[in-house]
Simulated scan of single mutants.
Amino acid sequence: MDVIIGSKNPTKIKAVQEVFLTDIVTGYDVPSKVSAQPLSDSETRDGAINRAMQCLETTSGEVGIGLEGGVMQVNDHLYLCNWGALVTRENEIFTASGARILLPREFNDKLQAGAELGDIMDAYAKRKDVRKNEGAIGIFTNEHISRKEMFVHVVKLLYGQWEYEMKSSSSN
């Protein structure tokens, strides 16, 4: 089966490959159609759905997957958030969210002003391409959870929902 992920980010591609072990997984660059830095749970989820849907609109893949990282506000604190979407040719849409972690207060103004978390993290950690490697979650969990692991969890949630639906449909 051809699984298309709406990203060329190696961390996201590896996360999907880890779950779809026997399938062909291809990264395809599609826009999220949301802000470069989503600032809410809803916007982050929308970005994941948009990416997944565009995968099927622009390729012949059988399943489209979108993974989107963002930030969300809880009271006056910003948290890292992430969402995934799996879309089938039958137009079934499955969504799931994963880990959330508090971001340093010093990030708030920069994020609200439109800066991307990945750029902030590179400067903060004095590293390059944090978003393509351990991610903010890796930095702030002292590498106990990497960005890939965080997205693997979300992809497993998506895959499990889809698999359950396929089994339920075939038994009826």
Results as ranks from 00 to 15, higher is better:
V3M: 03
I5C: 01
G6H: 00
G6F: 01
S7W: 02
K8C: 08
K8E: 13
K12P: 06
K12C: 05
K14M: 10
Q17K: 13
T22P: 09
G27L: 05
G27T: 03
S35E: 12
S35P: 01
P38L: 07
S40R: 03
S40N: 02
S42V: 14
S42K: 15
T44M: 00
N50D: 00
R51W: 08
M53P: 06
T59Q: 02
G61N: 12
G61Q: 05
I65A: 06
E68N: 10
G70L: 01
M72I: 13
Q73V: 06
L78Y: 14
L78A: 06
L80M: 07
N82K: 13
G84T: 10
I93N: 10
T95A: 04
G98S: 03
A99V: 12
R105A: 14
D109Q: 14
L111E: 03
Q112D: 13
G114M: 09
D122I: 00
A125R: 03
K128D: 12
K132F: 06
G138F: 07
I145C: 08
S146P: 00
M150K: 12
V152H: 11
L157H: 06
L158G: 14
G160I: 11
G160H: 12
S168P: 08
S169P: 12
S170E: 12
S171K: 12
N172G: 14
N172A: 13
